[in-house]
């Protein structure tokens, strides 16, 4: 990225951050949606460069994310940060289970294994309502707070969704 572009981008980013800290609930809702949609679109673009993995990514990303949130919200399991390695272990175990048949089946048979596995993960996460909240998902989860910044979820979501978007465009620009 050229220096002038970096400066303009930095100023723009600072303005957006300032706006997020002062925005009302509806504005935050819109900004968070835009940020999250951008992230999902960018991830989809990255995955689409490798078609064999794209179905796998879309099938597993949402249940894995929801399982992580589920773990993070349960006091009996541990603190919020402890949920990160736990979610990684769960995702790794799921990947291992899927990888084993991958060595034997090919073509449409592999497609069926992938679809069936995605179905099992989705249904399993939904039926594990004690952790994931079932088909309705998790409601009214606890807010994250850092120093004296407002701890409303939408504000954090908006701010955090800016980081990967900004990083992606700075490397492609």
């Amino acid at each position: 990225m050229k220096p002038a572009g970096a400066i303009v981008g930095g100023v723009l980013l600072a303005c957006i951050c300032l706006f997020i800290t002062r925005a009302n609930g509806y504005q935050l809702y819109v900004i968070a949606l835009v940020g999250l949609t951008t992230i999902v679109a960018l991830v989809s673009m990255c995955w689409s460069e490798c078609p064999a993995r794209s179905r796998l990514a879309t099938r597993h990303s949402m249940p894995s994310g929801r399982t992580w949130w589920g773990f993070s919200q349960r006091r009996s399991i541990g603190r919020w940060w402890a949920a990160l390695p736990l979610a990684a272990l769960v995702a790794g175990a799921a990947g291992l289970v899927l990888a084993l048949p991958r060595f034997r089946v090919r073509g449409p048979y592999l497609a069926m294994v992938t679809i069936a596995f995605g179905f099992v993960v989705e249904q399993g996460a939904a039926e594990w309502s004690g952790v994931t909240g079932g088909w309705n998902g998790l409601l009214a989860f606890r807010c994250r707070a850092w120093r004296d910044l407002p701890s409303r979820n939408a504000r954090w979501l908006s701010l955090s969704s800016l980081a990967p978007s900004r990083r992606f465009f700075s490397t492609r620009g």
């Binding site: 048949p101 034997r104 089946v105 048979y109 069926m112 294994v113 069936a116 179905f119 099992v120 399993g124």
Partner: peptide, 22 residues
């Protein structure tokens, strides 16, 4: 019926793992 689909699709995966051509 709660876990019927999970179980049947797991059986499908196992069957294909054991017999890769159906």
């Amino acid at each position: 019926s709660t876990y019927s689909q999970i179980t049947t699709f797991t059986l499908v995966i196992l069957a294909l793992a054991l017999r890769p051509n159906g």
